[in-house]
Design a protein around this nucleic acid. Sequence first.
DNA 1: GACAATTATCGCATGTTTGCGATAGAGTGA
DNA 2: TCACTCTATCGCAAACATGCGATAATTGTC
Lengths: 109, 109
Amino acid sequence: MRSQKTEKHTSDALALVEEMTGKSKEMADLVEQEQANLDVAREIYALRIKAKLSQAELARKVGTTQSVISRLEDADYDGHSLAMLRRIASALEKRVEIRFVPSPKLTQA
Amino acid sequence: MRSQKTEKHTSDALALVEEMTGKSKEMADLVEQEQANLDVAREIYALRIKAKLSQAELARKVGTTQSVISRLEDADYDGHSLAMLRRIASALEKRVEIRFVPSPKLTQA
DNA sequence: GACAATTATCGCATGTTTGCGATAGAGTGA
DNA sequence: TCACTCTATCGCAAACATGCGATAATTGTC
């Protein structure tokens, strides 16, 4: 978990999303993507915590190293692959469900 | 859409899933993954058809080429990235929703 | 069959993710 | 403070997805 609270490091996607209600049209896409990245990162983090595992422990289950898990839990990281998400899910007795849902459209604030 | 019906090309994930009810434990994972790949490929295909677009047309909207779309709709392809799925979704006025759901466990047949 | 439109597949360059060790920083407890 | 655990971050090689053109294969129509 890089951004968020205490750290002033980089993005702070949440704050961004809340602040900019309806700026430009292209921005909406970027914000949405940040939201999505954030969600994936958060969910991995949440699942890991719920399973009471450290990054290193999850890494071992997944078959990788701690730094990789840390990277995946970084909200600014947007390089997720389905393959990796499935590996994580499988290690936690879950499976990944992908859905294409109608875009909110984000008209006005 | 490579596998399925008419073509005898490669995997035929569906048939596999139906045939092997409860072989080994490791196999279950592979089968599940095939299922998931199939679902993603199928959904992209379904969305594109519903939007009445050819692969070439969707490709243009997404900002890539026809062969790339074809690859994504191949049920045997398992190299999907979230980034690409989002591009597809965005081009079709959708967004991608990722969820980790409890694994069915697949005990016995 | 000939033709057009669409899709599947190949090959290769390029960009990106993963693998993984090393290391730094934060937090905890003795 | 030291020792320990956990997490963040860097750097680089290897593995992998994308970009994209060329070309086969498929399907439908006349």
